[in-house]
Design a protein around this nucleic acid. Structure first.
Lengths: 296, 296
DNA sequence: GCGACCCTGCAAGTAGCGCTTATGGTTGAA
DNA sequence: TTCAACCATAAGCGCTACTTGCAGGGTCGC
């Protein structure tokens, strides 16, 4: 087995013309070069160098090796350079999956900061709701999954790296002319008889749980993943809703008014990744930018 | 510094999908693979593999390395193959320099045998007289120099590998009608008054030395490197000559008769090479074939 | 011709690398 | 739940590869 290190030394010997000069160039001692060349000749099975008194010449086999060495060492340095670019964030690809309200708020700021700090990185963004996004993460189809959970249930993600980003309060949304439109805080029970407009399946389940804890079952007339649509429906006076603050932040609630809802319900928004991926520079940098944007 | 050995292991891990399978394929134990991958990740500065419970996946950097690995390992095996071909005499070049009478007798047989035994070898032949041929050898312009010397003078070639091939007697040559044409043996002094035809400069110098040892200085009318010309001149009755037996062997002495000359003068024909070159397989094989042909 | 400098080879000592065996923990399947 | 497969880690050990030091030999300049 010929080693690349030996080829590097052989090339240095070939260009400098002496063991000592090659050793100086390589930053080691002359016997080290001498021994490496002996080892290389041993593994080659034939002499590679001709030691005459005056100069150091290559044999035919030595010339063949030097000829190949350039390509091999070039390939090695190219590989090292590419890996170093990824490790040094001059390159690197991050595949991000986010739920809709995250991708419209947290993600743009984080990606802008990432791009500014490390122009070579490339990020792709796909939208998916938590159960599916975590599955994609485990299947290797993405590197970071933005997800959320209501309360720290725990247990479902303990094989993942969970980076908490922020906690998101649920905010009530009522039509502008509604009797509770100006209230400082509204008990959820006061909305027991209203028609409801629900969000995504998880949010809907959470809504039902909270309402049932308050003693009623909400009458859900509409359910849609599309938060602007929810707001539009509320604004049209078709019902009330509770939405994560994050979902409202990026939308101007036209015709609807926000009210604080009691009891306070929070959802925790986290970034998920695999333990090994968390150590990939581009992934770590993206996580950091997400944390930074979330801290605002 | 990324090592080729690590790339080989990484590629095996990538294709087999597990450390254990890679270890089986590479003929080593699983911890060896595990440690090599850890070392490779350390020198890469970023994770290369994602260990999920079920499967082993590559990171972006890992994919980059595997992509480069094929070219690098292919280059290495190509280099090994080329060197192995030279070492195994399936290839190899020998540059031979011979003096004229050697190239017409010893060399053809040796090269034919070499070609028969190792068809991949290539031999080039150049003619040069000893002082020049040894200089070419030392300058790296040839691999083997066929040379000769009168008596084992020694001292001039002690940094070279000297392979004696055969000893060549000087034989007298007189015109067919000469008074000594039928003699069994002729003392050199009996030719003191003859006109002489001399060969190459070294042979000429040797002739003068021998004659002066016998008490006379030969009158040299002609001198030429071209042995057939010498024989032609003798055949034309223009003088007498002494020539190496080897020089006469390949020429039909037309109009001239050979006579044994006393005292017997021998020249030793040797093959010269550099110590390192003597260990080059193609050179060693050529030397062996020269010895074998000379033994006949 | 002689001395000085440079280069290579050899030897010994040492540090570190890399392999092995053994063991524990985890995952996935029966 | 049990079993099999797999990965990680630790300890032990042999070997590789470097270093320093020294001797021999060649070349160049004085």
């Amino acid at each position: 087995m010929i080693e690349a290190r030996h080829l590097r030394v052989l090339r240095a010997v070939s260009t400098t013309g002496s063991f000592s000069a090659a050793a100086r160039e390589l930053g080691c001692t002359q016997p080290a070069v001498s021994q490496q060349m002996k080892a290389l000749e041993s593994s080659a099975g034939t002499p590679l160098l001709i030691r005459t008194g005056r100069e150091m010449r290559l044999t035919e086999a030595g010339e063949a090796l030097v000829r190949h060495a350039s390509g091999i060492l070039a390939g090695l340095t190219a590989a090292e350079e590419e890996v170093a670019a990824i490790a040094g964030l001059r390159a690197g690809r991050v595949r991000l999956v986010s739920f809709p309200s995250g991708s419209s708020t947290l993600v743009p700021g984080a990606l802008a900061a990432l791009r500014a700090a490390h122009p070579g990185t490339q990020v792709s963004l796909v939208e998916a709701e938590p159960p599916r996004s975590v599955e994609m993460l485990r299947d290797g189809d993405c590197d970071i999954a933005l997800a959320f959970r209501y309360g720290t249930t725990g247990g479902e993600w303990d094989d993942l790296v969970v980076r908490p980003l922020l906690t998101d309060r649920l905010i009530g949304l009522v039509p502008e002319g509604h009797r509770l439109a100006g209230a400082a805080a509204v008990g959820i029970g006061e909305l027991a008889d209203e028609p409801w407009i629900a969000g995504c399946p998880r949010c809907r389940r959470q809504l039902v749980e909270v309402c049932e804890a308050s003693g009623f079952t909400p009458r859900i007339d509409f359910a849609t993943d599309d938060y602007p649509a929810v707001i539009g429906l509320v604004g049209a006076g078709l019902g009330v809703a509770v939405l994560p603050a994050l979902a409202i932040e990026s939308v101007r609630p036209k015709g609807a008014r926000t009210v604080t809802v009691e009891p306070a319900v929070e959802r925790e928004i986290v970034a998920l990744t695999l333990p090994d991926l968390a150590r990939v520079p581009a992934v770590a940098a993206t996580l950091d930018q997400l944390s930074r944007v979330a801290a605002r």
